[in-house]
Every structure is written in structure tokens, then in C-alpha cells.
Design a protein around this nucleic acid. Structure first.
Lengths: 241, 241
DNA sequence: TAGATTGTTAATCGATTAACAATC
DNA sequence: TAGATTGTTAATCGATTAACAATC
């Protein structure tokens, strides 16, 4: 290997990692607009972040560094960030549960950019068999363990109903998965050393709703009478034809 | 109003809120199994959490409290948590972008439990018009502002492609939304006081992948030759017919 | 030189965990 | 009484922000 530094991942906080895509997006569009240099101040203002945080984040993923007075060279930053995402990551996942959410994830094009790939979907529903989403095929559940093992997949994604999640999880573990991304709203029991990341859509929306209530108390929780009517009549669709 | 306490939301950390559903799920199934009492120790072990954290979390959402030696009364905890979720929250949202992800969210049944409801979807695609997912109808985008205003909706959900997100966001703000749940991987510019919660699926998976790399370095990034074959031939589907 | 900007060291803040006193 | 358990107060940890010295 010819990397200048240890290719093992430097400890970069999750929060930083989550912000990286926003930096990349901003820098790419700035570059497209013809800008060549930028500063932490400018980025921070654009993305609503703290200036120092921007510097620390950029320092964490880019070796280019900025220079006093002139700031950062956008082109370099972009390429460093792309390297960071692409080079440091190259992982494959299987997905179980080809419902709406499963299909959405299979179809999602954004994983590529991060060196991530869902290679196949699994489902127990006969009707789904052999269907393809974004060129990812749906296989029967009874092939899950065997295929995942043979493909050497390390990440399993669970998008089945809560009741089926633990069973699927067990299969994924048996198949050798080391990390599980769980969209079912249940706690999964896994052996020591297996990593589970829970994603609860309802809980996320709840968080937003609570923030709202904190800041704005109760407004607009009235008018319930008229809207049922509006929505159900479908009258809102008029004028469209 | 006849509530025993100020109905405004007590400051409960986001982390705590995210854990609440897991407590509820565990407690409900314990109750179903016939258990009447439990302790923070037991819960912590079951859900892989710290014991003290469990006590603090439960204290935050339940007034019942536990008693030394006997612990908590599960029935009371369950009812307190359900109240916490249901009573403290009652918010409605509109969703824009009826692609795979949009449909998945519209179809998701889990919001009810938290007093949350997506009331309608919007899309620019003619073909989607009037379709229903989980009884939520898709309306044309040009009705978004008017309908959202009239319905007094405070939360907007953006599941459109990145390029369309800012435009949709502007419409939602114009329509009076105070909070935006954004699934498009771009930073949204909003006026002061509007809350944006970003959800980046790719970034979430990236986090998982990075954890993996930290803990297990590089294993199983081989065998790339044979699997393309397996998957593409669809031979894995044999034996199914 | 003066001023903009970086990067680092120190302070603050919030959440988790540990220690412990209270109680049944 | 002894032991399990709660709830609180203090310590730790990690991330964000502020202060500041270095530099072009």
C-alpha cells in the first residue's frame, strides 16, 4: 500500500462526519459558480455553523489546510473530502424487507458517493422475488444467510415489520454481518461485538414536533373542523383537471 | 384545561426521547408476558443501557416513580409513557415528494402512536395525482401553499431530489410551516426561527460503516470476483421455483 | 504595518456514568 | 436487620464555543 499515512481511520467524531456532506455540497456549488477560495467564516455563515467548528471539521478531513488571509483553496478541499469519503469507505450491505422503505433505500442513489453499496434485497413475499430496484435484485429470505456469507457482506439493513426484526437480525448475525442498521422500532438482541444502529422515523419526527412545542407552544391546533372536509372531498384537486 | 401540571414541555433531552420508544416496547412485552414489576437494573440489562440512565429517563417521563426494593409498576410506566407521547404531542405534517421514500413515510403506520400525522402528500408528477397511500392523498404541488395554510400545518417533510429541495422549502415556509424535516442531502436556507432537521440516509450508513472499520479494520473486502457472477446470473433464485 | 484569517489551547456546556445517601 | 433498589449529587467525558497567538 502506498498511502502517506496509516490507512486506518483517524478518530473523527460522528457529528463531524454528518456535517461533511454539507461542506462538500456547499463547496461544490461554490466551485461551480467559479469561486476559487473561501474561508471558514464564509462557510460558517452559509451553513449556519460555528466558524471554529468549520475549521476543526475541515482540518479533520483535509490535509491541504488553509492559509491566513487567503483561506482555503476550494478545489483542494473538495478533492480531499471526496477522497475522505470514497477512499476511507468501501462497504457493502444487504437489505431485508422490500416494503416501501426497503425499496426506497434500494433505489436511493446517494450511497455510491460515499463508497457504500446495497448489493441485494431479501424478502419473504413470493411476489417480490426477482424484482429489481436500481439494479438490485430481491431474493427469497431463505437465501439470505448463504448468499450473505458467500458475498462476505458485513452490513445488514432491516426494514421488516417490528415482529419479524429479531428473527431477521439473527439470520444476519449468523450470516456474518458485523453491523446492523435497524429501521424496525424494536430493540434487537445481538451477541457481544455486533453493532446496531437504530433508526426510528417516528421518533425523529417526534423530536421535531417537540422542538416546535417548546418554542411556539400551542398555535394552530384549531380549525380541525373544516379540513377533514377539504381533504376528503378531494375538492383541492379541482382546477387541476 | 385540567392538567395537573403545566402542559408545556419539560426539558427532556433528545437522547432521552429517542430511548423512550425502546422502554415502551420492552415494558409492553413484559406486561404481555405477565410481569407486573421491574427494576432499572433489569431494563438496563435488557436494552443494553446504563442503569442510572434508565432511572433518569423514566423519572423524566413518568410521575409514578419506583419504590426501593420492589422497583417500578410496569402498568403505570406504560400508561405514563403512552400519555407522554400521546398527550404532549399532536402535530400534523405535509409531505412533498411522493417518490419511494415519500410513499414509505406516507405509508408508515408508526406515527400515530406518537400523536403525529402526515395529512397529505404533494408532488409535481401528474401521474401521482389523487393516489392514496395509507389514506393520504397526493395533491398537485401548486396546491401546497394554499392547502397547508388553510390546514394550519406546522411541519413540512421534504422528500424531493436535492435540486428541488430549496424551492419546496421556500413554499413550505411561505405556507407557514415552522419546522422542516429534510431528507434531501442539501443545506436549506430558511428565515430566522424556522427549524430544520436534516436526515441524510447515506451519511447514516456511512457512520455505521466507519464504526465497522474502526473496530475490525479491513476484512472481507475480497471475493469481489465471484459474487458479481452470483448476483447477476440470478442463479440464487433457483430452487425457489 | 494593519487586518484577515488560520489553527491551537482553554472554557463552557450537556450528557453519561459513578458514588452515595435514603428507604422500604 | 440486611439487602435490593431508588433517586440525587458529584465526577467524567465529549463536543462546542471562546480566547488568543501565529502568519501572511
Amino acid at each position: 500500500m502506498m498511502s502517506t499515512r496509516d490507512s486506518s481511520i483517524t478518530p473523527i467524531s460522528n457529528q463531524t462526519v454528518k456535517r461533511i456532506p454539507f461542506y462538500l455540497g456547499y463547496l461544490q456549488s461554490a466551485l461551480a459558480a467559479g469561486t476559487e477560495n473561501t474561508s471558514a467564516t464564509v462557510i460558517a455563515r452559509a451553513l449556519n455553523l460555528n466558524e471554529v467548528q468549520v475549521r476543526k471539521d475541515l482540518a479533520a478531513v483535509s490535509q491541504s489546510g488553509g492559509r491566513p488571509r487567503t483561506g482555503y483553496v476550494i478545489k483542494d478541499l473538495v478533492s480531499d473530502i471526496e477522497d475522505f469519503l470514497g477512499l476511507n469507505n468501501n462497504d457493502e450491505a444487504v437489505l431485508v424487507g422490500a416494503g416501501h422503505l426497503g425499496k426506497a433505500l434500494l433505489s436511493y442513489k446517494g450511497f455510491d458517493e460515499y463508497g457504500l453499496k446495497i448489493v441485494a434485497g431479501f424478502d419473504s413475499d413470493e411476489a417480490a422475488m426477482g424484482m429489481e430496484y436500481n439494479e438490485k435484485m430481491i431474493f427469497p429470505l431463505n437465501k439470505l444467510v448463504d448468499l450473505t456469507k458467500r458475498l462476505n457482506i458485513r452490513i445488514g439493513i432491516i426494514t421488516v415489520p417490528a415482529g419479524a426484526a429479531q428473527g431477521v437480525c439473527d439470520m444476519l448475525v449468523e450470516a456474518g454481518c458485523l453491523a446492523i442498521w435497524n429501521f424496525a422500532p424494536v430493540h434487537l438482541n445481538v451477541p457481544e461485538g455486533i453493532m446496531v444502529q437504530n433508526e426510528n422515523m417516528a421518533a425523529s419526527l417526534l423530536l421535531l414536533s417537540r422542538h416546535l412545542q417548546e418554542h411556539f407552544s400551542h398555535e394552530g391546533i384549531q380549525g380541525k373542523t373544516e379540513w377533514e372536509e377539504i381533504l376528503e372531498s378531494g375538492s383541492a384537486l379541482d382546477g387541476q383537471r
